[in-house]
């Protein structure tokens, strides 16, 4: 065993680095979904569409900034701007027009409303951006690479992926934690997450909280998409594959748990990159194996709270 580690230690180090970079993106998407689910109790399938639209919008805004003659560094704030724009426009629109009508319905109906929305947005996205792959990689080229030593060799990594993405994820995680625990609005959101009935009984306007949380969740989904734009080409269907992974994260993490989402994203990201290095065949099923394993031990998810049974 010791032998195996001395032999493969450097490889394991590289896998960790890749894992952290991919975990950052997984976290950004999943945390928004988890937040929305925690507060609204709606599992939002259209979160994947918001991710995709955020990604496409980031590319469009980026191209626009470049054609307007803005310098290359402007591509980074352009990503953020695109995500805010998508979240602020689509978030309230979806919440007001659709979700508001179904809060009192069965969970399955709520879920299907978002599924229907997902189907509609999937085609709408095709109408706007077409089917040819779109890429916008200026931020990655801008930030260059860092060389990581590997034995006598060096492995170049994208600065964007191994430094910027994890940094944004950590800032988001810490920022969210402070916001939820230290500010009034945050505490109100937490209160609704923990016990909606008690919170509304104490005079909290749940509707306002829902609108705010959903808009915020939509912005996080779009930001996840925008941050993925510089490293990958956008094609129809990216929303569909993103949402399945995010679902797995949410169920593993425990509902509404921010830290749980971060830990789960790390486990999935690192698990997958280790799989690519040592057992490539397992890569695809890693998230599901982790999820099933966690739920076997902790049926409420990693950080989930056991709900009191009502009679």
């Amino acid at each position: 065993m010791g032998n195996w580690f001395t032999e493969n230690g450097p490889l394991l180090g590289l896998a960790l680095l890749d894992g952290i970079a991919s975990a950052a993106l997984i976290f950004m998407v999943a945390v928004g979904l988890n937040l929305v689910f925690g507060v609204l109790r709606v599992l939002n399938v259209a979160h994947g569409s918001l991710f995709a639209i955020g990604a496409y919008a980031a590319a469009s805004v980026g191209f626009f900034a470049a054609s307007a003659g803005l310098p290359a560094w402007a591509s980074l704030p352009a990503l953020l701007f695109a995500a805010m724009l998508v979240g602020l426009v689509l978030g309230p629109l979806i919440e007001r027009l659709l979700l508001r009508r179904i809060y009192d319905e069965e969970p399955v109906l709520q879920l299907l409303v978002t599924f229907a929305l997902f189907m509609i947005l999937e085609d709408a996205q095709k109408l706007v951006w077409g089917v040819q792959p779109v890429s916008f990689s200026t931020p990655v080229s801008l930030m260059g690479t860092v060389d990581v030593p590997f034995g006598t060799d060096v492995i170049p990594y994208n600065t964007y992926q191994v430094i910027l993405l994890p940094a944004v994820a950590v800032v988001t995680l810490v920022g969210l934690a402070i916001f939820l625990r230290r500010t009034l609005t945050g505490r109100v959101i937490l209160a609704v997450t923990m016990d909606r009935e008690a919170a509304t009984a104490m005079g909290i306007d749940a509707r306002k909280v829902f609108l705010l949380t959903f808009t915020f969740g939509a912005m996080l989904a779009a930001l996840g998409g925008a941050l993925s734009t510089p490293t990958s080409s956008l094609v129809p269907g990216i929303g569909a594959s993103t949402i399945v992974l995010s679902f797995a994260v949410v169920a593993t993490a425990g509902l509404g748990q921010i830290e749980g989402a971060a830990l789960t994203a790390l486990m999935i990201g690192i698990g997958r990159s280790i799989a690519v290095t040592f057992y490539p065949e397992l890569e695809v099923v890693v998230p599901y194996i982790i999820m099933v394993a966690v739920l076997l031990v902790r049926p409420q998810g990693l950080f989930g709270v056991v709900e009191t049974r009502r009679v």
Partner: peptide, 28 residues
């Protein structure tokens, strides 16, 4: 025997996860 211990979102998501594992196996 496994999933009947779970309810609501966990029930739904476990079924989803297992079907995706099966899907991956069919391809693998």
């Amino acid at each position: 025997l496994f999933v009947s211990r779970y309810r609501e979102i966990f029930f739904g998501m476990l079924n989803l996860a297992l079907s995706m594992v099966f899907y991956s196996m069919l391809e693998k």
